[in-house]
């Protein structure tokens, strides 16, 4: 995916999935697959999910824009139910995340490794904010902050529209993805359907890294 360069655009404005720059950005449709039950990190989860549908969301459209200093992804998918309310013990939230490699050797399918982490930009409907996560293997993810990733989701007419954004570069010792205009990297996406009790490793994902290049050519404004 070649990410257009929307110069002079405030990343906060891009959190609105209806913002003008998104209208002129062509999305890519990505087929999603459920995570394999055999890769779930605990026996109880494998026992609970054997024979059940994992990954209720089967396709997603992804658009992306960068402002020269920040990168925003706009995810959209069909979901007949808006699951934001977690009042009952059996209610789970809809959620989505963009995954980026923190190192050239990072593997998406295993959610990174201690020596080659991955960096997730995560949004969950009940909090409707971003979460900055480092993955160092299946079942080994940790939140490093809840400020740097900006995210907002709107559900209407049976569809989620979610924008997830972050600054290209972060001043931190944590193994986050540091992005550069013009350089080639990869991305993956994941979606959790709360109505299907999806949480943790029970999710739909896009598979191996897909190419991501932040275009160096500035778009004309408007």
């Amino acid at each position: 995916m070649l990410v257009p360069y929307a110069a002079n655009v405030d990343v906060e404005a891009l959190l609105d999935a209806d913002a003008a720059p998104w209208r002129s950005t062509a999305p890519e449709t990505i087929a999603m697959m459920g995570t394999p039950v055999g890769l779930q990190p605990t026996g109880a989860i494998r026992a609970a999910w054997t024979g059940k549908k994992i990954g209720a969301v089967e396709r997603i459209t992804v658009a992306a824009l960068h402002t020269g200093s920040a990168l925003a992804f706009r995810l959209e998918w069909a979901d007949p139910t808006e699951n934001r309310d977690l009042t009952d013990t059996t209610s789970f939230a809809d959620a989505a995340a963009v995954l980026l490699p923190s190192t050239p050797a990072s593997v998406a399918m295993t959610m990174g490794a201690p020596t080659a982490p991955v960096n997730a930009w995560y949004w969950r409907s009940d909090a409707d904010g971003g979460r900055h996560v480092i993955g160092e293997g299946i079942g080994a993810s940790r939140t490093i902050d809840v400020e740097l990733v900006r995210a907002r989701g709107v559900w209407k007419e049976g569809r989620w529209q979610v924008v997830i954004a972050r600054a290209l570069r972060i001043d931190t010792k944590e193994p986050v993805a540091q992005l550069e205009v013009g350089a080639k990297t990869g991305f993956a996406v994941a979606v959790w359907d709360g109505a299907n009790s999806e949480r943790g490793g029970i999710k739909a994902f896009s598979g191996d890294w897909r190419e991501l290049v932040l275009d160096a050519t500035k778009l004309a404004r408007g």
Partner: peptide, 10 residues
């Protein structure tokens, strides 16, 4: 081996 179950509701 882990035995499947469910979450009780409120």
């Amino acid at each position: 081996q882990p035995n499947a179950s469910r979450i009780p509701t409120r």
